[in-house]
Structure formats: C-alpha cells, structure tokens
C-alpha cells in the first residue's frame, strides 16, 4: 500500500492543504510569516521493522497528539526534539528567554501550535471524506516516539511525514505522525481512487 503513488500523492496533497491552512493561522497568531512544508511522506504498518519507533529513534521528543474517532479512528501527533520544540516556541513568541527548555508555559504554547496543525490536517481529511470526525483534547507529552503507537496493533497503519517550519528566516524541523486503526485507512484510499478516477 505504501508503494501506491496515487495514494501517496493524494495524502500528501491533503496534508499540504491542511498545513497550509495551519501556517496561515500561525502566521496571524504570531504576526510572522510562517511557512510549513511536508517534504517526505511514508506509509507503513505499526508492526513493521520500520515502525514509528524505528523511524524516529529512541530520543525523548516533545509531542502533541489528538485522538480521533468516527469513520477513521486513530491518533495524530506532531513531534519535535526537545531543543527544536523550545526553539519553535521562542521563534513564534519572541521570548527573551532563549534557554532551550520546555517548561509548562512553552508546553502550553506548543500544544496550541500542535492543535492548530493537527486540526488543519485532520479537518482537511475529514472534509475530503465528507464525514465529520470526533476529536479528543490535545495532549502534550515528552516521551519516545514509540509511545504514540502503544495503544495500536501491529497491523494498524501509520502515516509519517517530515515537517519543516520556517519562521523569520529560521528553519525548525518537526515530524508528523498519523496512526490509524486497522481498516481506517481504507475509506481514505477508496475516496482518493474515486476522485482520481473521476479526473
């Protein structure tokens, strides 16, 4: 499935629309020009050798995730190294304190940023499917990437996308992960094929 270029292109397009919307909101919010890019996308199974833990390694990360349910069930997360997370908050808020430490105030800010981004992407996917999703509240955690996949089975799918924030001519790297319960990817794949067939 991860080798189907039509599906990959379709999902990449949806994610790009979502992050584009999020970038607009973040730009307004922080009065800065924010560019969000998603250069790479990978789809795999949680139990594969190249699962989320292997892709992102064992280092602790600053993560914001939201669980969702409805026609698709799963979890979407945005992840940064601890230093990148602090740098992104500093860039977005013009904080005078430049210590690369994620305290509670910064964690709250990153939660808002993650929430905007996740809402942008999942909102776009949900609109594309034409069916609303139900969302839990955003959660901020510092943990290894594998933590995000803990409630999921080996056959569940994950979509992994590298994400680059550009704020004030500075670049901050993050990663985006969507884990979907088994079968949840199918409605999206069907819809993408249906749209492509129409064209």
């Amino acid at each position: 499935m991860n080798e189907d270029p039509v599906v990959l292109d379709g999902i990449r397009e949806l994610i790009n629309i979502g992050v584009g919307k999020a970038a607009g909101i973040l730009g307004e919010l922080t009065s800065s020009h924010v560019i969000l890019e998603v250069p790479t996308l990978y789809i795999g199974e949680v139990g594969n050798a190249k699962g989320p833990g292997e892709v992102l390694g064992d280092a602790p990360l600053s993560m914001v995730f939201i669980d969702f349910s409805g026609p698709m069930r799963g979890r979407m997360a945005i992840m940064f190294s601890l230093e990148s997370a602090a740098n992104l908050v500093i860039l977005l808020t013009n904080e005078a304190d430049t210590t690369a430490e994620m305290d509670m105030i910064r964690a709250e800010t990153l939660t808002e940023v993650g929430n905007i981004l996740i809402n942008g992407v999942m909102g776009t996917i949900s609109n594309f499917l034409g069916q609303p999703l139900t969302y839990a509240l955003p959660v901020y955690v510092q943990n290894r990437a594998a933590y995000l996949a803990t409630p999921f089975g080996e056959k569940d799918h994950f979509l992994f996308a590298t994400t680059r924030f550009q704020v004030k001519q500075r670049s901050v790297h993050g990663d985006m992960l969507i884990v979907l319960e088994m079968g949840s990817l199918h409605p999206l794949v069907r819809k993408i094929h249906a749209v492509m067939d129409q064209e």
């Binding site: 808020t93 939660t111 929430n115 996740i118 999703l133 139900t134 969302y135 509240l137 955003p138």
Partner: peptide, 9 residues
C-alpha cells in the same frame, strides 16, 4: 476539533 488557546499567546 477543539481549539486550544495557550496562556502565552
């Protein structure tokens, strides 16, 4: 989903 507004922003 829900909107989360942080105390910093």
């Amino acid at each position: 989903g829900a909107v989360y507004l942080s105390p910093q922003l």
